[in-house]
Structure formats: structure tokens, C-alpha cells
Nucleic acid binder design. Structure first.
Lengths: 337, 337
DNA sequence: CTGTTAGCGCTTTCAG
DNA sequence: CTGAAAGCGCTAACAG
């Protein structure tokens, strides 16, 4: 490809003049500008982002670490991150954490290798300590859907506990007492918080949830199916089930469908949901909304702030970094009469 | 961050020695190696991919243009592309086409700016001519799910026509005669091919599909719902409906659920599917499988081949670039008795 | 086996 | 308003 040198020669000017024109720095004689622009057009010149990065030590690249690519969750995240980045003409580098600590470390290393201006981590395996240590480095990063003590100002968080409380309270308010819960993998903090929210809401209503009223899934569809089976075998008297992910809800509904247990006349179903998938089930199920899209948006904004002023935190106060749940009521649950 | 110069100074050797050790070129006195490795470790040194790119004029970056991020389709694509790229230590740059020609052009421009080693296009708006012209440039690229005359050796394709034929024939074989079709946006080539496959299969069975037996959707859920309504209002006698995307199928099922039209006892449902979403519906619906995952994998392989030998096409013959449909039979359709 | 010297394509003082 | 020159961090001949 043509280089700036080629353009300069063709236009009969110095490279720095071309550079200035490209970057719009200073003023130029109009014919100089014309000559340069013409040369660029003729050569189909495009400045090398790479060379520019090296010279300016700013790459305009932003890294995004995700745990997996499937599911609408990730898509929603990408969507928002990209949209925001596009506007600022930045490049998005995505890498996957391979579901393990070494994978996530490697990901960060790659961001470093590229000298990304900053990165966004949806990390699940890096330890708090490791993250805190990373925060010492100059390269700014933010965490999405994770809270690390001491790094609060870089965390975009969601109140999973309150989310569960909210939806379970909704069920309780409708007169339900026998409410089962399909949780995510309890070794994961957020999944644990969701489960605890359920338990807390139940206890607040004077109901002690029996261990057999809770089944652990892996957030996937199949596990929802299995958990439903387990739950209903142990507790045929359940009048409602709360599932902690939309995928598991799909499995749950499948099970109910196969057993000809009618929703919502025989049992109510409510769910966690991030991408409004619950509206595509039949019947459409009520859910607590996990606003991953908005959170991603906030993450980019936060990061942009950190990148702009490396150490200060001016104006970040205005930024919303903590998100609270909201209810989306639909038709798969109904009052106990 | 520490640079190669810092490492060299600390180790008391020349930069090129460090460079060679990093890249494992040649042999070294063991104490030289040790000194260098120690210096690198102490400084926490990581070579700059950017500087390296500039020096070698190879960036190890691969671009991926997608039309949108939502839906499992895209996730499946990312998954495979990343996995493959990770193994070769390459970086993935994703950009979105913004659903318009200018957006897709801009995307390619950005790949150029970064001097990506190559890119993968899931393009819908760039014209055949434009693509052919791009092919003149040195930067290799491949097309996924698109066929462009003259660029056959860069296209990873799927037989959409045959896919529709296959699933409709399945329905016909079961005795169905009144089969409706919910198609994608007919201004899109692939959507049109799917519709034509349906028509061809019907005609081959001696049935002329009436215009009112076909409804156009936009591949989204809502449109599936609307199309179902439209179809069944005009043709209450339909015994089966073929929906050209899993999302539309979801809408279709929702409609049937609301109208209390039982599947499969009152009507059979079959669908197009790429990410096995149809197995998460209840009842699970039979589908023709659109193997986007495998195709993505093939795309990366193809691209890797092109990047390795810029002009030649050795060994590409072994590569599978064309994919045929396969049936995944489940329970939402049944024979006419 | 290792050092010297250019140079990748751009930006950025510093002059003029 | 424009040119000259140095430098970003690395690699790649070419010597030795």
C-alpha cells in the first residue's frame, strides 16, 4: 500500500506536511492542501493505524474479554461496546477466556502485547488480588458485572441479590408459598447471590426454603430441564418456580410441556433474563431484567473516562456504575386464588 | 512498558540478540540466553505486537465483518473463528456492517487501516462488482455464506435452495399437501433461495403454492408471529408450516400457542435452524440445519491458506468450501394419518 | 554466536 | 505555513 512518503513525493511536499493535513493540525496554503489531497486520492492512500500507533503510543484499540460467545448475553454486550467504540473510531479486539484462569490471563497478556489503550473484562476466574495488582499498571481497564474491593471505581455492577428478592417477592405477593428455585452454579459469586436473594425473600415472608426446593443448574437449557424434574419429583406441591437464567427457563418449560403441567394454570414460572428471551417463550414469562446492554454501555463510558485522564476520576461521579433490577411482568405467572 | 532496548541494556547484550532469542532464531551461548531471559522476567517485558507488525509488515490480525451481533448465528460464528485464530496466536478484530453498504465499506477500510493480514466477510450489502474489485488488492479475504461469480475460490457457501427442498420434501413425504411458508426478506438472495426451494419442492409434488400460502418476514420473532397470523387467516386448512428462521419459528409457535392450535396434533411445524435453537422450543421442532459453525471454521482455514501463499491456491482443493443441508428430526411435525 | 546499521510508516519537536 | 531530523519498538540483512 502507498505510504505517506509516496504521497509526499507525489504532492511535492514534505511528509510532515502530509501528516499535518491528515490530522488537521494548523493551516495550509490552499494549493498545498489540494495537491496533497489529490495525491492521496490518486494513490488511494490510507494512513497505517499501526505506524501511527507506534509513533503516538496510542493504539485506539480496546480489548474485550468475554467468557463465552454463545447466548444473547454476549451478543448484547458486543452490540453496545461496538456501537460506542465505532463512534470514537476505535478498534475492538475480542478474546475469549477459555473458562479458566490461565485463559483469562493470556487474554490480558494479549491486550498488553497490542498495547491496547484499555480493556473491558467480563472476568470470572481472575482473582480479586490479581485484578487489584493489575490495577497498578498504567493500562486502564474496567470490570463488568463483578465487584472487587478496592476497585469499586472500575466496576460496573448489578445487584443480583436484590433481583432475586424482587421477583420472589412478586410471587409471594401473589399468594405463592411453595416456590422452588433453579439456581446457577453455586461456586459462582453471582449465582450464589441470586440464590441468596431467593432465600432471603422467602425467609422474610416467614418461609424457610427446604434444600430440596432448590436445584443447582449450570445456566444451560439441559440443566434447567433436569432441575425441573428434580424439583417437581421432590415437591409436586410447588405452585411456582423461579429459574435463574433464561436458558434454564427454556428447559424448565420444556419439562412442564412434556409432563403436560400447564403454565400458568397449574404452576407459575418466573425467570432471570438479560436479553428479553423470556418474551419469546409461550406463554411469555415474567422476569427480572438484568440490563447487560446498559451495563456494557456504561463500561465503555467508564473506560473512556479512565483513558482520557489516566489517573484522575473527574466527572466519573456522574456516571452510573451500579444497576438495580426491574421487573418485566408477562403471563406465565398468576395469583393463587 | 519496558522495551527491547531496556532488556538489552539490562542483559548487557545487543537488541538484536534479544530479538533473536524471543523469536528463537539461531543458537546462543547458554549464559547469554539466561541473562536475557532473566532481564525479560525482571522487567516483565512483553514485545510490542505493534512495533513488530511495523517491522515485519505482518500484523497477525484478522478482521471479521458481521451484519449484526444478536442471535446465536453470530455467536456460533465468533466462537469458531476465535478458536481457530487463538491457536495461531492471531488477533481478531470484529466490526459491524451497520446494515448498509457504506457501513460495510467502512468496515473494510478499517481492516485496511490496521493492515490486517486478511479478513472474513459476512457481507450482505457490498456488490459483487465491488467485491471482485477488492479481490484485486493484495489483502486476502474470504466470503462466508455468499457466492460471487469469479470469486468462487474465496466463498464458503451453503445450498439454501436444497435446504428448503429437503425439509419440504420431508413434509410432503409425510402426506402434507397444504404447507405454508414463512420466508425471510425476499430482497435478500439467500432468503429468496430458501423460498424458491420451498416452491420447487411443492411444484415437484404437483402442488402449485398459492401466493397467500407464503408470507414474508424479516427473520425476527415478531415477524414470525405476524406471518403466522396472516397465513392461518388466509388458509385455516394448512396442515404444516415451514418457517425460514428459528426466530420466526418462535413467533409462529407463540401465535399457535395463543390460538390454542396444538402442535403437532393440529398442525406441523418445521424450521430453518443454525444454532439448534429449535430443540429448545416445546415441542422441539424438526429443522434443516444451517452449519454456520462449520462454515466459519472452513472460512478461517481458507483464509489461512490464502494468507500463507498470497497468490497460489495449492492444497485449497482439499478444503471443503461448499456445504449441504441436513435434517434434524424432532417432534413438532408428524405424518398426516 | 553476536553486534552494527537501516528501516518499517508515521508523528513531533525545532527551525525557518 | 512548511521542511529537516529524530524517534516510537522491533526486525533483518550484513559483518565479524
Amino acid at each position: 500500500m502507498a505510504s505517506i512518503k509516496d504521497v509526499a513525493e507525489r504532492a511535492g511536499v514534505n511528509r510532515s506536511t502530509v501528516s499535518r493535513i491528515i490530522n488537521g493540525e494548523g493551516k495550509f496554503r490552499s494549493d498545498t492542501r489540494r495537491k496533497v489531497e489529490q495525491a492521496m486520492a490518486e494513490l488511494n492512500y490510507r494512513p497505517s493505524a499501526i505506524a501511527r500507533s507506534l509513533a503516538t503510543s496510542s493504539t485506539n484499540m480496546v480489548g474485550l474479554l468475554v467468557t463465552y460467545y454463545t447466548g444473547g448475553f454476549f451478543g448484547a454486550m458486543m452490540e453496545k461496546v461496538q456501537a460506542e467504540l465505532d463512534e470514537h473510531k476505535k478498534f475492538l479486539i475480542t478474546v475469549q477466556g477459555h473458562h479458566c484462569i490461565e485463559g483469562e490471563r493470556e487474554a490480558v497478556r494479549r491486550f498488553d502485547d497490542l498495547r491496547c489503550d484499555g480493556f473491558i473484562l467480563n472476568s470470572r476466574h481472575l482473582s480479586d488480588d490479581e485484578l487489584r495488582e493489575m490495577a497498578q499498571s498504567a493500562r486502564p481497564f474496567v470490570l463488568i458485572d463483578r465487584v472487587v474491593e478496592g476497585l469499586e471505581d472500575r466496576c460496573i455492577t448489578f445487584n443480583h441479590f436484590a433481583a432475586s428478592e424482587l421477583i420472589v417477592e412478586h410471587l409471594l405477593a401473589q399468594g405463592h408459598q411453595h416456590i422452588g428455585c433453579i439456581s446457577g452454579p453455586i461456586h459462582r459469586t453471582n449465582a450464589r447471590n441470586r440464590l441468596r436473594g431467593y432465600q432471603a425473600a422467602m425467609r422474610a415472608a416467614g418461609i424457610e426454603p427446604k434444600p430440596t426446593m432448590m436445584a443447582e443448574g449450570d445456566y444451560g437449557r439441559e440443566s434447567g430441564y433436569a432441575a425441573a424434574k428434580q424439583l417437581l419429583s421432590a415437591h409436586p406441591d410447588l405452585t411456582a418456580i423461579y429459574s435463574c437464567s433464561e436458558e434454564m427457563t427454556s428447559g424448565l418449560l420444556q419439562y412442564l410441556y412434556e409432563r403436560k403441567i400447564e403454565v400458568p394454570s397449574q404452576i407459575s414460572v418466573v425467570s432471570y433474563d438479560s436479553v428479553d428471551l423470556c418474551s419469546s417463550f409461550y406463554p411469555q414469562v415474567s422476569a427480572v431484567h438484568f440490563p447487560i446492554g446498559e451495563m456494557s454501555h456504561a463500561a465503555v463510558k467508564l473506560l473512556a473516562g479512565l483513558m482520557a485522564r489516566p489517573s484522575a476520576e473527574t466527572a466519573l461521579a456522574e456516571l452510573k456504575t451500579h444497576f438495580e433490577p426491574s421487573l418485566k411482568l408477562r403471563r406465565a405467572d398468576q395469583p393463587i386464588v
